[in-house]
């Protein structure tokens, strides 16, 4: 099974000019360790909100050149705020791509068991009438990312990953700076 870090490395290759919003905890830390870019928005807290913010960005960017706005979220985060799935189903944001890294645990806080071991998140997304692609290995993940970027959304990629965390420094930048860079990237 792939690690979150392996999958993020793949995603990094394809998203040089695509806004990407990453969830709190190890996801943002691993993502930032690959290289800081202004098209990244690192969430330092507000667990579960990443997909919602990405819906808003996708809507605001409807007439702009960006192909997508990508949200990276964990299984814990998605199940904390499944409301974003409802909104994506209702609003039908064409540029919204949600990548769920599902390790069936709260890896960032030490690997405690989450609810995802007994819930299939791809099926939950499909239950909301969303297109969902389930992947279990790196090749399938890469293929899903490449094709989803070229296609109208909303799309959910449900990626099963192992429970590994990379050791990376905390992101304790001033959030104002993080938001400013991202917003400038989107609107200039």
């Amino acid at each position: 099974m792939m690690s979150r870090f392996d999958a993020l490395k793949v995603l990094f290759k394809y998203t040089e000019n695509i806004p990407v919003i990453s969830s709190c905890g190890n996801t943002s830390r691993e993502w930032a360790s690959l290289g800081r870019r202004d098209n990244h928005l690192y969430m330092v807290d507000t667990m579960g909100l990443t997909p919602s913010v990405a819906i808003g960005v996708s809507m605001a960017l409807e007439d702009k050149g960006f192909k997508k706005c990508i949200a990276i979220e964990g299984d814990g985060g998605v199940l904390m705020n499944p409301n974003a799935l409802a909104s994506a189903a209702y609003l039908n944001p064409k540029k919204w791509l949600l990548i769920v890294f599902d390790n069936e645990c709260f890896a960032s806080t030490g690997g405690q068991c989450s609810l995802a071991g007994r819930i299939n998140i791809a099926q939950v997304a499909q239950g909301f009438n969303l297109e969902a692609i389930q992947v279990e290995d790196l090749d399938a993940f890469e293929h899903a990312v490449r094709t989803s970027i070229e296609k109208d959304g909303p799309i959910v990629i449900h990626a099963k990953i192992n429970q590994e965390n990379q050791k990376n420094p905390f992101i304790n930048d001033d959030p104002v700076v993080l938001a400013h860079k991202f917003s400038q990237f989107l609107t200039q």
Partner: peptide, 17 residues
Amino acid sequence: SREEDGVGIAAGISLGG
């Protein structure tokens, strides 16, 4: 469906100009 989600969406809209 929930105000928390609404705040997130509105924030994204605002960041997007």
